[in-house]
């Protein structure tokens, strides 16, 4: 009732402020939490704010940030991808195998290696999306299956061996930096920015949010949610392929057991960033903040000298806290509070 007489019929001002302010507010909360954390660690751990440590943190969150960017697509459309860690290992070992081909010159091997990683990631992602939406199986189950398939394939490819000794021109990116900022982090930020544009400005992004909120309404408006779901998971896979390359340049190895549990960190970043696990609500800005919170927490607690076990407990509590916060936001949204 209150809604209908909230204001006069349209025409006065295309008020875009309302929506933006509301969205900004949602992320402001997470940003404040991050800021508080940074201030706290800066106060108790003197080394926290050194340039080296900041660069360290940026390097350390890069892989998770890239994975979480892809994960945001899967979660926003109402799914989830548990296979990212395992697929990342598969991407890495396939790319690593290509890189080690003696018959190729370095530049060719690098180009093919990059292409292989991206292709494997996208193929696995498309497969996840296709199976889960074509047969209407929860993506939770499908990607759990993919996790095993990809991990097994990675072990099969390498016979459980570590691949190492890549061309220097390839691994040089891992430690390179511009103006003191790690190049790989800049790459992750660019990726995130591109993702943000896709989600907020394109038809694809529009469909992701709409399907995440109400797939049936989208279908009954004459669209094919199937296509967009496959695409969304393919984007997730693409990000995994990129993350695998970042891993390889940074650690100069590729082994089939890398990335175990990375999916959980990526999901945690997305959720802490305020994206709803049930889909349709959230943003990549939140994901960036979420990944930063996880990275800062891990770094700061070690700097403070907190033991491993306590560190794990605190990280868990932060995730639970974020989800509780999200439920409050959801309730506010349901009440239509602007």
């Amino acid at each position: 009732m209150s809604a209908s007489n909230a204001s006069s019929p349209i025409g006065t001002s295309p008020s875009r402020g309302g929506g933006l302010a509301r969205r900004a507010l949602r992320e402001a909360g997470i940003g404040l939490a991050l800021l508080a954390m940074v201030v706290f660690f800066a106060a108790v751990a003197p080394d926290f704010t050194t340039h080296e440590n900041v660069a360290n943190i940026l390097t350390q969150i890069t892989i998770n940030l890239i994975l979480a960017t892809g994960m945001t697509f899967a979660i926003l459309i109402g799914g989830i991808d548990l296979s990212v860690g395992a697929v990342m290992a598969l991407c890495a070992v396939v790319a690593g195998t290509v890189l080690k081909l003696d018959s190729l010159s370095d530049p060719v091997a690098i180009a093919l290696g990059i292409a292989a990683s991206l292709a494997v990631g996208m193929a696995c992602g498309a497969c996840n999306g296709f199976v889960s939406s074509f047969w209407r199986v929860p993506s939770f189950i499908v990607t759990l299956g993919m996790l095993n398939v990809a991990r097994g394939a990675a072990l099969e490819v390498t016979n459980a061996r570590t691949i190492y000794d890549f061309p220097d021109s390839f691994t040089a990116f891992g430690t390179a930096s511009v103006l003191g900022v790690p190049v790989m982090f800049v790459l992750a930020l660019l990726l995130l920015g591109a993702g943000w544009v896709v989600l907020t400005r394109t038809v694809f992004g529009r469909m992701i949010y709409a399907i995440g909120n109400n797939e049936e309404a989208v279908r009954l408006s004459g669209h094919r949610p199937f296509v967009f779901k496959v695409l969304a998971f393919t984007v997730t896979g693409l990000c995994v392929g990129i993350a695998a390359l970042v891993y390889m340049t940074r650690l100069t190895i590729a082994n089939p057991i890398l990335g175990i549990g990375f999916e959980l960190n990526a999901i945690a970043a997305v959720i802490i960033g305020g994206t709803s696990l049930s889909g349709g609500r959230g943003s990549l800005v939140g994901t960036l903040l979420g990944a930063a919170i996880i990275g800062v927490l891990a770094n700061g607690l070690i700097l403070m000298g907190v033991t491993d076990f306590v560190r794990q407990i605190i990280t868990g509590l932060v995730i639970i806290g974020a989800v509780i916060l999200d439920s409050y936001r959801a309730r506010l949204a349901a009440r239509g509070g602007a």
Partner: peptide
């Protein structure tokens, strides 16, 4: 790695062979 294991890699990636278990 030699050419043979590269081919194995491609085959495994393509068919997504099951874990050894």
């Amino acid at each position: 790695m030699d050419r043979r294991s590269f081919l194995a890699a491609c085959a495994a990636a393509g068919t997504l062979a099951a874990a050894p278990g």
